[in-house]
Structure formats: structure tokens, C-alpha cells
Amino acid sequence: MNRRLLRKLTNFVALGLSGLATAVGLFFLGAILWTLVSRGLAGMSWVLFTAMTPPPGSSGGLLNAIYGSVVMTVIGLLIGGPIGMLAGTYLAEYGRTSPVSSVIRFVNDVLLSAPSIIVGLFVYELLVIRMGHFSAIAGAVALGIIAIPVTVRTTEDMLNLVPQGMKDASTAMGAYPWRTITSVIYPAARSGIVTGLLLAVARISGETAPLLFTALNNQFWSTNLNAPMANLPVVIFQFALSPYPNWQQLAWSGALLITLSILVLSITARIVVSRLGPSGGNR
């Protein structure tokens, strides 16, 4: 019937469009990755990892920026990770159903999606003004604050996946909750928690806006946490917007570096969860 044909046609067109939409999405992913690889690869060499950021017009590398990013990410994780894990533990184990927990969960989700530039402004007012100067530690704190909601969420989700039976067995043997958590639940959810930390690292290592007002940047090698420190995102920001070819090349190579690291981290996180299972394979 005519009606039937129309329905079939609509179906065909609609599903065709959805396939097209997916193709469009994949196209842009491919385009971006292709640009990154083709422009960034040209600058990849040992020099990139051994020389410092150069003045305009000279050649150099990204060593101080890579070091700064690694240091600030690690410290940020050390600040945000434990806080996030403890908070997630509270939500999953102690305050499961209390109204306070619901509020905290809600607030956490809001913080998760909040613009990172706001965090940068906050840490600027809190630390940079008080200390009187920009510093790597302020940058690390900003990154830590961004890592907290991510870690809270993943920790709570992972702890909730541990079978109740294991928790009950431990309690039945007379263990206090803290003992159950540290000796039974944490080890069981180990791979899930590690995944959460990896995802947090992936999230904060690409952040630029919070570092603009906290760690600033540094032309030279510096290990001083109490002073501005070079970091990849801000260096990319500065170099990409400059007219110097060698700076632009470094910006692309740096961008490729960041993206590769984040992709590797994200994929590793997935593999860890899928291979070992969120409960560490203790099935």
C-alpha cells in the first residue's frame, strides 16, 4: 500500500541519516587526528624532548614544558586523588542514603561539568594574590580541584560494584568498616579505582584555562614549585597564536604529544577495566 511504502521510505531515510551522522562524527575525529599527526609529526625528534622552549626565531624543544606539565599533573593528582577517593568512599560506604550524601553527589556532578576557567579564577583569588606571585603549586592546586569531582564519581561507582557479599563476610568476621574498606573493598575495586585515577589524569593534563592565571609560563627550565613553571597547554596556546614557524611547529608537536598521552591513558583505562573487571578480577 502507499502508506506502507511511505513508512518504509521514512524508515530508510531516517536510518540513512543516522548513518550519515555517524560518518560525519567520525569524519571530524579523523580530520582532527589527521591534522594533529601530519603537522605534529614533522617536529617530533629527540630535540623535542631534550631542548628547552626557544626564543622566537630559534629552534628548540619542549622539555621544560613537558616536565612542568608532568609535575603539576602528578601533584594535582596527589592533591585531588586522595580527597576524591575518601569522599567517594564516604558516599559509597558510610553515607549511602543520607540526605547530605544526595546533596554532595549532586554538587559533585555540578562541579564535574563546571567551566575550568572558573576554577582558575578561584585559585587566582585564593593563592596567587595571597602568595604575591604565580607558581607551579597554584597550578597544581587548580588541577587538583578539577580532578576531585572525577575521582569522587569513579570511586563511588567502582566501590558500589564490589559484591555486597564480600562486604558482609568481612563485617561478619567482626571487622570495623574502615578495616573492611581498606582490606577488602579497596583491593577488590583496585582496578576500577586505578581507572578512575587514569581518567582524572587524562582530564587534567589537557586543561589550559586554569593554568593561565595560576602557573603562567616560563621560558626556561625551572624546578621551583614556588615560581611560574612552563607547561604544555599554555606553551601551545602561546606558540600557536604566534607568527613564528618554529614556534608553531612546536605547538603542533606539543599538541600531538598531549593528545597521544591522553588517548593512551583513556584506552589503558578501558583495557584495565575490561580485562580485569571493575572488581579487580576477583570473581
Partner: peptide, 12 residues
Amino acid sequence: LAAVPSIIYGIW
């Protein structure tokens, strides 16, 4: 696509 940092989108 979600994992790609936003600054990459900017320069691209």
C-alpha cells in the same frame, strides 16, 4: 572525540 583536549580543537 571527548578525550581530545579543548585547546586542540582551538588550534585545529
